[in-house]
C-alpha cells in the first residue's frame, strides 16, 4: 500500500462537486505534481488531505491509517504539513516567532507551557533562514513583508516543521525566475526524505522537479504519468482546448 491513498474522495459545496471520486496513491519519498485548470479542485484536494475540508465521501489513508475523520491538528502531528496558496503566516508575529511556532515537535499545551523560546535560533532554524535568505530580518514583523518574502517565510516554516508529507500550493507564485530556481533546488533536496505534493503552474519548474504528474479536471483524475506522456495526452490537450490548450513557447 502506498504512503498516501485517496480512495473515491468526494466533496460537494452546495451540490457542486469540487472533488468528484478522486483516487490517488503516492509512494513514500515521491514528489508529485498536481496540474489542472483553475477550479479543477487542486487546492480543495490539498484541503481534504490536511483536514481543512471534510469530504462528503471516500477515504484518506496515511501510511495505512484512516485519517478521514481526524481533525487538522492530529493530521499535522501524524506528519502532514501544508503551504497555502495565499501565503498564510502569522502577521502580528516576527519572523523569529513565526519560525518558533513552526518548530512544533511537541505541540501539546502542557509541554509548550514549560518552553521559553530563546533569542538564539536553533541550528535548524538558523540553517533554514539562511536557505531562504531571511537571516537578516528575524525581528521584522511578518505583516511588513512583501508577497514574495511572505512566500519564502511560509516555505521556511514548512522546512522547520519538517513534516513527512508536505503539501505545497503554488509555492513559486510571485517569485522571480531566480527565486523559482532556488525553490526548485530546495525541492530537489527535500526529495526522498519527504513526500511532496506540489500544485504548480510553472511548467519549467514542473519539468525540473516532477517525476509523476497528475492532471485534475473537474474534480477527477484526468491523466497521470511522466511529463512527456502528459504533454502528449490527447485528453489533457482536449481539456485545455477551451482555454487555449497547452501552449509551447
Amino acid at each position: 500500500m502506498a504512503y498516501l491513498e485517496l480512495q473515491g474522495l468526494e466533496v460537494s459545496f452546495d451540490g457542486f462537486k469540487a472533488v468528484n471520486g478522486l483516487d490517488l496513491s503516492i509512494e513514500r519519498g515521491e514528489l508529485r505534481c498536481l496540474l489542472g485548470a483553475n477550479g479543477a479542485g487542486k487546492s480543495t484536494t490539498l484541503d481534504l488531505i490536511c483536514g481543512r475540508t471534510q469530504p462528503t465521501g471516500g477515504r484518506i489513508l496515511l501510511d495505512g491509517r484512516d485519517i478521514t475523520q481526524d481533525p487538522e491538528y492530529r493530521r499535522s502531528r501524524l506528519g502532514v504539513g501544508r503551504k497555502f496558496q495565499v501565503p498564510s503566516v502569522f502577521k502580528e508575529l516576527s519572523i523569529r516567532e513565526n519560525l518558533e511556532i513552526a518548530r512544533s515537535r511537541h505541540p501539546e499545551p502542557w509541554r509548550t507551557l514549560c518552553v521559553f523560546p530563546s533569542r538564539r535560533p536553533s541550528p535548524r532554524v538558523a540553517e533554514v533562514v539562511e536557505i531562504v535568505g531571511l537571516e537578516d530580518a528575524l525581528d521584522t514583523q511578518a505583516a511588513h513583508l512583501s508577497h514574495g518574502q511572505t512566500q519564502w517565510l511560509e516555505i521556511a516554516m514548512l522546512l522547520v516543521q519538517d513534516s513527512a508529507l508536505i503539501l505545497m500550493d503554488e509555492p513559486t507564485a510571485g517569485m522571480t525566475v531566480q527565486e523559482t530556481g532556488k525553490t526548485s533546488a530546495i525541492f530537489q533536496r527535500l526529495r526522498g526524505r519527504h513526500t511532496l505534493i506540489v500544485v504548480e503552474h510553472d511548467m519549467g519548474f514542473v519539468r525540473e522537479v516532477a517525476e509523476t504528474i497528475t492532471v485534475l479536471h473537474q474534480g477527477r483524475r484526468l491523466s497521470e504519468g511522466p511529463i512527456q506522456a502528459i504533454e502528449n495526452d490527447p485528453k489533457v490537450r482536449e481539456a485545455y482546448l477551451g482555454s487555449g490548450g497547452i501552449s509551447h513557447a
Partner: peptide, 17 residues
C-alpha cells in the same frame, strides 16, 4: 511550456521586495 492556468497569479499584483 505553460498551462493556461495562471489566473491566480496574475490576479495578485506582486510587489517586488
Amino acid at each position: 511550456t505553460s498551462l493556461p492556468d495562471r489566473h491566480d497569479r496574475r490576479a495578485e499584483p506582486v510587489p517586488r521586495p
